[in-house]
Design a protein around this nucleic acid. Structure first.
Lengths: 198, 198
DNA sequence: CCCCTGAGGCTAATGGCATTAGCCAAAGAG
DNA sequence: CTCTTTGGCTAATGCCATTAGCCTCAGGGG
């Protein structure tokens, strides 16, 4: 009986391949059977490394979030204000287009209470920390920052989700629409900064 | 053998109940077994009325899209410009919060080629038609309309998706953030109208 | 060098699901 | 009253996750 030499690491790696190969549905369509087949192993063998399908999914989410955070962070280093927001928005969209499956993994929220989700929560928190830092260039009032981060995430995430889902069927250039959206976002955040708080 | 007196209509109705009861995951978690159990019938019996689970899902999507279109249309009648955009945005969010499961059904895109998706495509097209009409009050250049509709859909859909997914964990008021987002949107669309096309 | 323990495979079994095939009774048309 | 269609049913298949229990290989202690 030849050993396959698996490990948790290897299993997660193969699962990531499956997710990547599955397009936008790669994450929801992830299956232990597919991972096992890729590993050249029977499905139950995976349980020696991975707990459950849900746990594998969570692990993938955590990695995807970290990856996206790192990219956003790298994209915005050395920039500030509007440029920083633009860079971050484009980094997000780029990641989503390059890795649709991983991107949707990025968007499942961790359970706020479940201790098993602690790592996931931490990763998510760090991700928003980067977003917050990106907005430092604007003179936003205390709670304006939250509104701004939420607006940025909403706008880009909504756009990218619709784009991946094939929601933009008009012939018009999608890149141009994205630029327009980012312009609105930047202008909106600036406006948020320069108004007196009510 | 007592007849249950089912019909396609009844099956879809029960499926909608299942979707509604399932929260944000009600749509993806929809199962023929649940519908059958609600109908007091064995699962295979449903095939006398419904083709397949995929078809049932599509039917639900079509209905949800029509419902949302009707609501948006009703919400914006008699309004124009910024007010219309605000009304539409709030109608969308309200629907998503009232019927999370149906809302996600609303967001699966029809296959552009599959003839079985014709009705779905039509419903989707009418939905964007309403959105386009809502923007009539702005003097948007030809292709600015597309950008504006995309921006509006993206912003609201992104916000609502993140909200339903529990993505906004800061204590700060979510309603306030949504208002801020809508403000940005309105300002952005106005800006799109009053700039010379490049 | 041998043993023996534990890790990492395996098969078998269970239970949920969708889907297909084929049967049978009820309802309604003539 | 009969005959056909319709709407149920059960049985079977195949895919999936998950659990239990077995077997063997690899590597460390004697």
């Amino acid at each position: 009986m030849a050993r396959a030499g698996l490990s948790r690491e290897a299993v997660v790696g193969l699962a990531l391949e499956v997710v990547d190969d599955g397009g936008p549905d790669g994450f929801s369509g992830l299956t232990l059977a597919q991972v096992a087949s890729r590993a050249g192993v029977a499905t139950p063998s995976l349980y020696k490394h991975v707990g459950s399908l849900a746990e594998l999914r969570r692990e993938i989410s955590v990695r995807a979030v970290r990856e996206l955070t790192a990219l956003a962070s790298r994209a915005t280093v050395g920039t500030a204000g509007p440029d920083a927001v633009r860079s971050m928005a484009h980094a997000w969209r780029h990641y989503a287009r390059a890795h649709p499956g991983r991107y949707v993994a990025t968007q499942v929220g961790p359970d706020p209470d479940d201790p098993a989700h602690a790592e996931h929560r931490a990763a998510a928190a760090e991700s928003v920390a980067v977003a917050v830092a990106t907005l430092r260039g604007f003179d936003l009032p205390e709670d304006g920052v939250v509104d701004a981060v939420r607006a940025a995430r909403s706008a880009v995430h909504g756009f990218v989700t619709l784009e991946l889902g094939g929601g933009f069927r008009m012939p018009q250039g999608v890149d141009r629409s994205f630029d327009a959206l980012v312009d609105m976002l930047v202008a909106g955040i600036s406006a948020l900064a320069h108004q007196d708080s009510p």
